[in-house]
Amino acid sequence: MNPEDIKRPENKVYSRPELLCDVSMHYCPGCSHGVVHKLVAEVLKEMGVEHNCIAVAPVGCAVFAYNYIGVDWIEAAHGRAPAVATGAKRLNPDRLVFTYQGDGDLAAIGTAETIHAANRGENITIIFINNAIYGMTGGQMAPTTLEGQKTATTPYGRRVDLNGYPLKISNLLAQLDGTCYVTRQSVHTPAAVRKAKAAIRHAFESSYSGHGTSVVEIVSTCNSGWKMSPAKANEWMVEHMFEAYPIGDLKNTVEK
């Protein structure tokens, strides 16, 4: 069949999510953020909550997330998104409230806000992008940077005797009584993308229905920061990141 004959509206099986704003994202080519944005946009629309949703953007590469997903957004100071989300959710308890944060934002400067929001069991979802590096500021060491990994501030590789260990903050969060669902996913293959989407949906539904804090860590690439091609970065992630940050549910108290 001629491809042009196939391209009819009735044959369409995949299109750009409606909730994704019709603009080009500022992210580098191949960046995982774009895929996760797409999944969040799809899930919000499929749940029918796009007009009852408050999202909180971080400081980091995703600072402009509010330009890409067409819901109400608050842009938080670096690391403070869980506290900002707490204020928004407590005063608007019937809204779906989520934060979107990177590893530096969530696991370094915002550790206290993250741990305590989760420990209070705030009914918010935290979407956590772990790419083991500070992307926005030019590729410096993150709390999640792997041992031996070269970054702009660990040019000879991260040394645990100097910089401590890669922080497995999702494991920490899973220990807290306030979290209902903590999972670690990735978006490097079509199958992984499907699983990540299901995880985001379960997280949103669990917190929206009042079960406590949900956390979806997406083990991601930063090919610019890692100084690799996007495809090579995916391979490197599978080979190195998955050992420190294995994929799968860390905790789930809500029936899927």
Partner: peptide, 13 residues
């Protein structure tokens, strides 16, 4: 699914 820029639409018959 893996496109970060959501610039691919797919059709199937």
């Amino acid at each position: 699914l893996v496109c970060p820029d959501s610039c691919i639409e797919v059709y199937r018959v």
